[in-house]
């Protein structure tokens, strides 16, 4: 439950080495490398077109990168390059130890299936499923994402944007993944709904010891969610470090510009 502290020789959960994705001659992302340790939450920020979403999709295996390694510390076999895994292995990882929270939420939900069915889907992939147990787990997870369990049989299309996002989070976390990829988790939500979602994500992350990689253009979101930050521009990493240090004492010209461009309230 408590994040492990100060262990210098801890194995990174994820090692990204020289990851490059080109779209023809145009750079998607180039030579991105970093290590993510268990329990760490990393934010990736940049403007539209900076390559942050390309990077996220390349890491998660949605778009095959042209070059590089994405090494994950698997439960069974230790660190493995997920890009060299067979497709069944990678998809299995995507259903168990990895989770991907899409934006908009409807991209990560089955809109014609009830809330309970959405949460239960990952559980039903394993043999000999038990309806009562799946339903109990679905109800429990609805509670954890602050949705009344009286909504368990409602379809997500009847939910507000914030509820859809919380449902998507429940659907992803139900199998207890160790690494969560998030694409603009608060995107498209009202400010008041964002705050609740951020608080929820902080709480769940702390309880489950989750590691996460969060792509967003919203610096306020990463300040509240991320331990560390990577700033991207034109497909390259321009700066990285402790989140509040990068935001309060940016070293690179572009980061200074990005930080000073945020409207103060």
């Amino acid at each position: 439950m408590i994040k492990e502290v100060g262990a210098q020789d801890m194995t990174p959960l994820l090692q990204v080495n020289s990851l490059t994705k080109m779209y023809g001659a145009r750079i998607g992302c180039k030579d991105v490398s970093f290590d993510l340790y268990p329990g760490e939450v990393m934010g990736i920020v940049g403007e539209s077109g900076s390559g942050k979403s390309t990077l996220l999709n390349a890491m998660a295996g949605y778009h095959a990168p042209d070059q590089g390694e994405v090494i994950f510390d698997t439960r069974a076999d230790g660190p493995q390059d997920t890009l060299k895994m067979s497709e069944p292995e990678r998809r299995m990882l995507g259903r168990t130890d990895w989770a991907f929270v899409h934006q908009p939420a409807r991209d990560g939900l089955r809109m014609s299936v009830s809330a309970g069915g959405n949460i239960g889907e990952r559980l039903m992939a394993v043999g000999g499923p038990h309806y009562g147990e799946i339903r109990a787990q679905a109800a429990d997870w609805l509670g954890r994402v602050e949705i009344s369990d009286s909504r368990i049989d409602d379809r997500p299309s009847a939910f507000s944007g914030g509820m859809q996002q919380r449902l998507q989070i429940a659907r992803n976390l139900v199998t207890g993944p160790r690494l969560v990829f998030m694409d603009e988790p608060t995107g498209g939500l009202d400010v008041s709904v964002q705050a609740r979602l951020l608080d929820l994500l902080r709480g769940l992350g702390r309880e489950m010891g989750l590691s996460a990689i969060i792509v967003t253009h919203d610096l306020a979101v990463v300040r509240l969610l991320a331990d560390r930050l990577m700033v991207m521009k034109d497909g390259h990493e321009v700066e990285s470090g402790l989140t509040d240090q990068v935001l309060d004492d940016p070293q690179h010209a572009y980061t200074q510009l990005l930080v000073s461009s945020v409207l103060q309230v």
């Binding site: 497709e87 069944p88 998809r91 009830s114 069915g117 889907e121 039903m124 309806y131 049989d153």
Partner: peptide, 22 residues
């Protein structure tokens, strides 16, 4: 087709789950 080739049949039970819940 991919689900068949990889034996990913969780979705089939989602259909039955929806039946029971409704």
């Amino acid at each position: 087709r991919k689900m068949h080739s990889l034996e990913e049949y969780g979705l089939m039970h989602v259909k039955l789950y929806e039946d029971i819940s409704q």
